[in-house]
Structure formats: structure tokens, C-alpha cells
């Protein structure tokens, strides 16, 4: 039996559409009346778990789900022991450093040493500033990170930027890009090696769908 961990939020719709194309229908998750966290495919050979995006690699790492779909940003942040199989090309965004528009700083290196940087991505932020050899205090936040500079708690933030609209509406300015992120198909390494229940075939089906849209 195959279990797939799917992320709540922005990647869900594209993930479900992709799986539909390989014959796995979990569209009930998109029904706003749905409260179920576990849904079986009509063929009852596969099921999906609906979890927070941060938790997708956890279920896959521990093997409760053989496959999962999650953003590269979270894989970079959490460094889970999972197999990275396919770049699914959707959910494109970037992890960036932003400051207030009125701030005098226009690059990360201009930030004064020991300034505060608010972020949900504490490891990515820490690694980035360490690579610049710039000592900063990382302030962990769980949401609405933009409020960090607005309230004056932090000089800068490290956060995901897709269209840039949220930054603009909050009078923030993107000054550095750490990396690009897209959704990834990941697998539990042991299950991937054992390849039971046609796991490999499913992965190859998904890969062929994705590569069809990518210029070689």
C-alpha cells in the first residue's frame, strides 16, 4: 500500500492535480467541507495524509508515508533524511532578506553586526549570515514575520517571497535572495530502496509528467 503525505496550504491544489494525472484521486481534500486528515484513493491501493507543510518530511523520514510533496525551502531548513526525487516545478518562490523601505541598508552585508533578523527559517538564516561572517541575532517567529521590522523588533527578515506583493503592501524591500524553491517529490529512503507495491513506477509516472513541461 502506498501512502503520500500532502502539505496543507499553497502547494495542495497543484499536488492533488499532479497525483490525479497518475491515477490517484485525493481531490476530497480540496472540498472546503472536508475535515478528514486521511483519505483513501477510490482503488483503495493508496492513501494520502493531510499535514502541515513542515510535517511532510517528518512523516516521510519515519516511513509512515513512502512519498511526500513539500517545498525545497522546508527541506533546506529541516535537512531531513529523505530521498529527493523530482523537482515538480510548481510552488516557485524564493527565500529572501528584506528590510523596511525606509531602512538605510540595501544589502545584507550593510546590516550592522549583532542586529536582529526575524525568521521562520532559523537554520537557513543562521547559515546564510554565518557564510557572510556577519554575527546577527536570529529571532524565531511562526508567522507574520513582516511585523518584525514594522514594529522595530528586528532590522530585517528572512522570509519566502513569491510575487512580492506582501512585502510591498507592508512597505518592505527585498535586498538579497538566498535561494529559489519549488515543490519536490520526496521518498522514504528504505521504502525507495525496497521498491514495493509499484513505488518506482509511480515515481517515474510523476517524473515523466513533470519533465514534459520543462524545456530540456
Amino acid at each position: 500500500m502506498l501512502t503520500v503525505a500532502l502539505p496543507k496550504g499553497g502547494l495542495l491544489e497543484d499536488s492533488i492535480r499532479l497525483l490525479q494525472q497518475v491515477g490517484l484521486d485525493f481531490s476530497a481534500f480540496l472540498d472546503s467541507a472536508n475535515r478528514q486528515l486521511e483519505i483513501w484513493d477510490a482503488s483503495r491501493t493508496a492513501k494520502a495524509l493531510l499535514v502541515r507543510n513542515y510535517d511532510v518530511p517528518v512523516y516521510v523520514e519515519y516511513g509512515q508515508a513512502q512519498l511526500g510533496i513539500v517545498g525545497y525551502d522546508i527541506l533546506r531548513e529541516k535537512q531531513p533524511q529523505v530521498a529527493h526525487l523530482v523537482d515538480l516545478q510548481f510552488g516557485r518562490c524564493r527565500l529572501s532578506v528584506a528590510v523596511k523601505e525606509s531602512s538605510p541598508y540595501r544589502s545584507a552585508l550593510e546590516l550592522p553586526p549583532h542586529s536582529r533578523v526575524a525568521s521562520k527559517f532559523v537554520h537557513c538564516a543562521h547559515d546564510y549570515f554565518q557564510s557572510l561572517d556577519l554575527p546577527v541575532e536570529i529571532v524565531p517567529l511562526y508567522g507574520s514575520v513582516e511585523l518584525g521590522p514594522i514594529t522595530g523588533m528586528s532590522e530585517a527578515i528572512v522570509d519566502l517571497v513569491a510575487s512580492g506583493r506582501t512585502l510591498k503592501e507592508n512597505n518592505l524591500l527585498e535586498i538579497e535572495r538566498l535561494f529559489e524553491s519549488t515543490a519536490r517529490l520526496i521518498a522514504h529512503p528504505l521504502s525507495y530502496r525496497l521498491n514495493q507495491d509499484g513505488l518506482h513506477d509511480r515515481i517515474e509516472q510523476i517524473r515523466s509528467l513533470t519533465s514534459a513541461h520543462v524545456p530540456a
Binding site: Q81, A83, H84, L85, D87, R184, A187, P189
Partner: peptide, 9 residues
């Protein structure tokens, strides 16, 4: 070793 196909690509 880490089964990271995307990195190889």
C-alpha cells in the same frame, strides 16, 4: 548515498 536525484541532475 543520500538518494538525492535532484542534486545529481
Amino acid at each position: 548515498a543520500n538518494l538525492d536525484r535532484i542534486a545529481l541532475e
